[in-house]
């Protein structure tokens, strides 16, 4: 099963995504971290998420780009956190690729076929109404396309609103 969990800043989407994995009863659990530990705020965020996962039996894999290369075992439960960072890393790092959207979507598809349960945390970055410079607009567009293309094959799509899961497609 593939689940896409979206939401705004600090809306409880990570906690919800972890709960889905924990409730699945699958023993082998991976946490694929995409946030690069640059700067104080990133360190704090990583530490906070690490504490939240503590004792839940996740094996952490760091995969800042090339999500398709994440080494997960067959039928495992996999949590990817988060699409916003993965997309930014693919678009803005030194080794930026030509078509990050297709690369990411096909990578996610590949993992979804291997995992027993794949939960992807993504970000709602579409509604602040601000017209940014072109690089950021390209990023917002890419995120919209990635979310749409994953939603098309995902079994479940959920948006978290202040901690409340709102079903968009299917149900867990």
């Amino acid at each position: 099963m593939t689940v896409l969990v979206s939401g705004g800043s600090k809306c409880g989407k990570s906690r919800y995504a972890e709960d889905i994995i924990s409730k699945s009863g699958i023993d082998k659990k991976y946490y694929i971290a995409t946030m690069q530990p640059f700067g104080e705020e990133a360190h704090l965020a990583i530490e906070r998420h690490r504490k939240m996962r503590e004792g839940k039996g996740f094996l952490t894999l760091e995969q800042y780009t090339d999500i398709e290369k994440a080494e997960i075992s067959l039928q495992s439960a996999v949590l990817i956190e988060c699409m916003g960072n993965l997309c930014a890393n693919e678009m803005f790092s030194d080794s930026a690729v030509e078509d990050p959207v297709s690369k990411i979507v096909s990578g996610i598809k590949k993992l979804s076929e291997r995992a027993g349960l794949l939960v992807i945390v993504t970000n709602e970055v579409f509604s602040d109404g601000i017209e940014y410079e072109s690089g950021t607009m390209e990023y917002i567009k890419a995120m919209g396309e990635i979310n749409s293309r994953i939603s098309a094959f995902a079994d479940v799509v959920t948006e978290c609103v202040y901690g409340i899961p709102v079903a968009v497609k299917g149900d867990v």
């Binding site: 800043s9 600090k10 809306c11 409880g12 970055v125 509604s127 109404g129 950021t136 202040y162």
Partner: peptide, 25 residues
């Protein structure tokens, strides 16, 4: 709902946005 946008460049705005998310939860 104020959290569905790009992470603000200004630190005080980032903190405000995150605190609103957490308090809302």
């Amino acid at each position: 709902e104020i959290g569905c946008g790009i992470v603000p460049i200004e630190k005080s705005e980032r903190i405000w946005r995150e605190q609103v998310g957490r308090c809302g939860c």
